[in-house]
Write a protein that binds this DNA or RNA. Structure first.
Length: 261
DNA sequence: CACGAGACCTGTTCGC
DNA sequence: TGCGAACAGGTCTCGT
């Protein structure tokens, strides 16, 4: 994970791009390789940001957007380093360093656009946006009868939650994954928003989760309440955690703490 | 509008 | 031991 300005990485702000190299063409979602190669060199990084699951690298003219999807990762290293297995795209700076986009499963994507809203425009609100009050969250839930699990995964409803964080949040809020959104009470909506906040904070504090060979250094997997714990006791009541498939996604919940009423 | 299936990919794990 | 199937943090497209 990119920790801008931390001890792990030198700050990227101010760096000038000298060249770029696309090693797996489909990683580049927009524009085509020819235009990407022509447009990126000469631009300087002015700021770093995030919106939903997108990393934003703001440049003097354009914005570079990165989405890690399932197995993507970003690192900064000297250009003399050998190309690693599954490196998909390189951005070389004029100071000898480079930013590397590595992605085993090739699901990750990179965009270079003049206006980031072209790509980010359909995203829902940030979970920590001050304007997303419990009441506003309740109102949004009541605009649909979709089940909570797939709804929370829908980035146009709420930006940033993935499969792990959705299961963990629903368990902490004591809400069944199949609950129709428009049947959630104001109290339950407030509890769910609070749970989402707490789970995200926990995940961030532990630098995210490491599963299988996708290890970005995080330890959140040691604190999962229900995710990937089917058959194990619920941390709250001891009931056996259940696994089911909802919208083709593995879904983990406690049948006692999260009853479907 | 809402949902399910299939596609895109590689690597690990599990069952036989 | 070997081999194929199932499965995995995400998202898009298509058909019903």
């Amino acid at each position: 994970m990119l920790r801008e300005g931390s001890l792990d990485y030198p700050t990227l702000v101010g760096k000038s791009i000298a060249s770029t190299q696309v090693l797996w063409e489909r990683t580049l979602a927009f524009p085509g390789v020819v235009e990407f190669y022509a447009r990126l060199p000469g631009q300087t990084i002015t700021d770093i940001g995030r919106r939903g699951k997108f990393l934003m690298i703001l440049l003097s003219l354009d914005t570079l957007l990165l989405h890690l999807r399932m197995s993507g990762d970003v690192r900064v290293e000297a250009q003399e380093m050998p190309i690693a297995l599954h490196d998909r795209l390189l951005v070389n700076f004029d100071d000898g360093l480079r930013l590397v986009f590595n992605d085993t499963r090739k699901f990750g994507r990179v965009w270079l656009v003049g206006d980031a809203r072209e790509i980010l425009g359909n995203l829902g609100p940030e979970p920590f946006d001050d304007e997303l009050t419990p009441l506003e969250f309740y109102r949004r839930l009541h605009t649909t009868r979709r089940q909570l699990k797939p709804l929370l995964l829908d980035q146009s409803f709420l930006a940033g939650l993935g499969n792990i964080y959705t299961d963990e949040s629903l368990h902490l809020a004591h809400l069944h994954p199949l609950t129709p959104a428009n049947e959630v009470s104001p109290d339950q909506a407030e509890r769910l928003l609070g749970a989402i906040h707490q789970i995200l904070e926990d995940g961030i504090r532990h630098n995210g989760a490491s599963i299988d060979w996708v290890d970005r250094g995080g330890g959140f997997q040691n604190y999962f309440r229900v995710y990937d714990r089917a058959g194990e006791p619920c941390p709250e009541c001891g009931s056996s955690i259940q696994r089911m498939v909802v919208g083709q996604r593995g879904t983990h919940f406690c049948p006692t703490c999260q009853p479907l009423t």
